[in-house]
Amino acid sequence: MTESYPLRTFIAHAVLILGILIVAFPIYYTFVASTHSLQTILRPPLPLLPGDRFIENYSEALFGGVGRIGGVSVGTLLFNTTVMALGIAIGKICISILSAYAIVFFRFPLRMTFFWLIFVTLMLPVEVRILPTYKVMVDFGLIDTYAGLIVPIIASATATLLFRQFFLTIPGELVEAARVDGAGPFRFFKDILLPLSKTNIAALFVILFIYGWTQYLWPLLVTNRNDMNTIVIALRKMISFADADTEWHLVMVTCMLAIVPPILVVVLMQRWFVRGLVDTEK
């Protein structure tokens, strides 16, 4: 029998509501600012209710271009960032799951040596190897390209380790049964491992998509043209030291548009994300 504690329940809900308000209010205030004119934003205090320039401001940012970033539209920035985030997430998952598959299910010389070499790269983040990586991108002519944004950071030792640990939990009897049924390596991977790994893949996709979406240092170095900037880089360029030179209404619109795709990914995939992290029954 479950006992009811009305006061304890009320306090718990009050704390949760207060936490939501503290987290959500800056986002709401940004949205309010994105619906007002520049003159209204520069003349404090900013109203707490949305203004009447929602359509005008969002249309100007998405299709009209922003002056401080060379007239590039926020739609172009969103496209660049989406391509980069998807490329990083999908690339990391593909490389990691294939690496883990080879390490766990194949027997070849120096197998564990290769695994530990992959694992050691956890101590070599992009910031440590950024100069030689940039030199390689220059030599291959990949500056201001999507390949230059994606390829240098698609390898993931963390995802490889997670897939390896999951593959080690697969019973040997399942592998033997697949072999008896005549399943080759590719069929075993496609028909058995991938379906079993779908929750892990979903959880990693959410994490890696957000990781790729919020990248700052590498896109800052590898892109020189404004039309190849990601939305995070463009936000920094849009802000000037002088308030009068900053189109704050467009900055606020860009901020709102920048957080929409990651939120959608988390909301749409939250069930798979949670199952991939906590579900032990595959």
Rank of each mutant, 00 (worst) to 15 (best):
A155M: 11
N224P: 01
T223K: 00
D191G: 07
T246D: 01
A183S: 13
V222I: 14
L42P: 00
I69F: 05
R164Q: 11
I263A: 09
I259D: 01
A203L: 03
L42H: 04
I239R: 08
I201N: 04
F115E: 06
E176Q: 06
A178V: 03
L110D: 09
A85K: 02
G141K: 06
V128N: 12
T280V: 13
D139A: 13
L162K: 07
M137Q: 02
F63I: 14
P50E: 07
D181M: 11
A159M: 01
L168M: 13
M137C: 07
I27P: 04
Y134S: 10
F241I: 08
T223P: 01
I192Y: 06
F166C: 03
L131M: 13
R271Q: 10
F79G: 01
F79V: 09
A102T: 10
M1H: 11
A147R: 11
W213S: 01
Y58E: 03
M256P: 08
V66E: 09
V72I: 15
R187K: 15
N224L: 15
V104K: 00
V267F: 13
P132A: 13
M1E: 12
W213Q: 05
M238L: 10
M84R: 00
I103H: 04
V180C: 08
P47K: 04
I11C: 02
G70V: 09
A202K: 06
D227P: 00
A102D: 05
A24R: 09
L18A: 15
K198E: 08
A147M: 06
I153M: 05
V267R: 11
T199R: 04
L46M: 14
G65I: 03
G182K: 13
G67K: 12
I210N: 03
L38H: 08
F106G: 02
M84S: 01
L18E: 05
A85F: 00
I103V: 14
D227Q: 12
F25Y: 14
F79P: 08
E60M: 12
I69P: 00
I20C: 15
E176A: 00
K198W: 04
T9H: 14
I11M: 14
L268F: 15
F54Q: 02
L208S: 02
L16C: 11
I41R: 01
K190Q: 14
K92F: 02
I231V: 15
L194V: 15
N226K: 02
A159N: 04
V206A: 05
P171H: 05
R236K: 07
Y134P: 04
G65L: 05
A12W: 03
T254P: 02
L131C: 08
G91C: 09
M238C: 07
V180G: 05
F10R: 14
F241W: 12
A14W: 08
S240A: 15
V253A: 02
F105C: 08
G19F: 13
